[in-house]
Design a protein around this nucleic acid. Structure first.
Lengths: 144, 144
DNA sequence: TATAGTAGTTCGTTGATAGGACTAGTTTAG
DNA sequence: CTAAACTAGTCCTATCAACGAACTACTATA
């Protein structure tokens, strides 16, 4: 007889499982030089490019950490830094063709996971789960 | 208009928020020399003590990582290593009085978070959320 | 009893994270 | 219109987390 685990811990278990699976799916498809933290940062990049400080804020990490991650992503050919035409101090981090090629693979694995979870819970409960999580985001996500 | 975020990412956002809050609550109460990774490891310790390899498995980390975390926890006075009477190679990691004093503070903050979430979603939907997450654990937690 | 296996540690390396100080460019107050 | 305040990003440095490989000490087994 085990105590009821806190909801947040159950979320941690499930989200880590999903992150690992997406990470492994990318590895197997040749994107084996990118880490989970790096992909999390990349997820925040807009199509037209995004400032480093915005990426840091979205990923909830310090600017210095974002700099280090972008350095590695740049060396591995996933992103490039271009000057921001509207502000000489700033630079836009943009995805390269290589990063764009990785996205569908990540999305596909994401989709597979959601399908499996839906199959396990049933469509209705899965939808309720999504709705509840989306609402919780309002009080747990400091950035929208 | 933003795309629907994957359920796993929403879980990540909420669980990180909760982990940070528990971490900060402990910091404020004087347990300021323990990190999130270290507390996660400690959560796996049974009342009578637990082998390091079991802790590693529960936290899903390598033995070497667990050794390093236990080293730090031991130096900070949160755990002690005692010989396992049933096996001379093994040692049991046990909480000290200091660690036991921290538990109620962590549990209290955990409880506050659940209350807030319940207030936000309503009791019924919160219960449905818990149930769905508990069921998902069966297919996302490699260790029970 | 020799050998195969297990628990834990040590060594060495990589990645993530951030505080503080700094440079270059921008905004604003007077 | 300039001096001062501010902002974006980087560099330096330090700590923590994580793990492969090799090792020691002990246990189980053939």
């Amino acid at each position: 007889m085990e105590r009821e685990l806190p909801a947040s811990l159950l979320m941690f278990i499930a989200s880590r499982s999903a992150a690992n699976r997406i990470f492994e799916a990318l590895q197997e498809r040749g994107f084996d030089d990118v880490t989970i933290a790096q992909s999390r940062l990349m997820m925040g990049i807009d199509p037209e490019g995004t400032r480093l400080s915005v990426l840091a804020e979205r990923a909830q990490i310090a600017k210095q950490t974002a700099t280090a991650l972008v350095d590695k992503l740049e060396r591995a050919g996933y992103v490039e830094r271009v000057v921001d035409p509207t502000d000489g101090r700033a630079r836009l981090v943009r995805m390269t063709a290589r990063a764009k090629k990785a996205i569908p693979h990540a999305r596909a694995e994401e989709e597979r996971i959601e399908q499996e979870w839906r199959a396990h819970l049933g469509a209705e409960r899965m939808q309720q789960l999504r709705d509840a999580l989306t609402e919780l985001r309002m009080i747990t996500d400091p950035y929208q």
